[in-house]
């Protein structure tokens, strides 16, 4: 499965559009991580626990989107977009969406 955030894939022809596919996940922060982050926050800098947590969640949302595209028989997803929002109680929603297509190498 090819994923790009451009409308076309260089060197590939899009022969069929299968439609919009998306994947999401809502992840709550672990209490222990939150307390550690609160201490780290006094000195500023990167909060690695959060960076990892969000990267994991985004990968999860992406794999759900890919699974949806595979079910449609697509070979690529173009125009992939990511959005993140904080929802109730400090949890974060990760949403990935794109257009599932069938792409073949250009002659």
């Amino acid at each position: 499965m090819q994923l790009v955030n451009t409308e076309t894939i260089p060197g590939w022809n899009i022969t069929e559009v299968k439609g919009l596919v998306s994947g999401n996940t809502i992840r709550a922060k672990h209490l222990g991580r939150d307390i550690g982050a609160a201490f780290k926050n006094m000195a500023g800098g990167e909060l690695k626990a959060y960076t990892e947590l969000l990267a994991e969640s985004r990968a999860e949302a992406t794999s759900r989107m890919v699974a949806e595209a595979q079910a449609l028989g697509a070979s690529a997803i173009v125009n992939v977009r990511f959005t993140t929002s904080t929802v109730a109680g400090g949890a974060a929603e990760m949403y990935a969406y794109g257009t599932a297509v069938v792409a073949v190498p250009a002659p």
């Binding site: 926050n41 000195a43 959060y50 990511f82």
Partner: peptide, 18 residues
Amino acid sequence: EPRHGELVVDSVVMGADY
């Protein structure tokens, strides 16, 4: 030129000091 495209995603969570 005809090449295989691929997505790359990276992020960082950063806080401000006190």
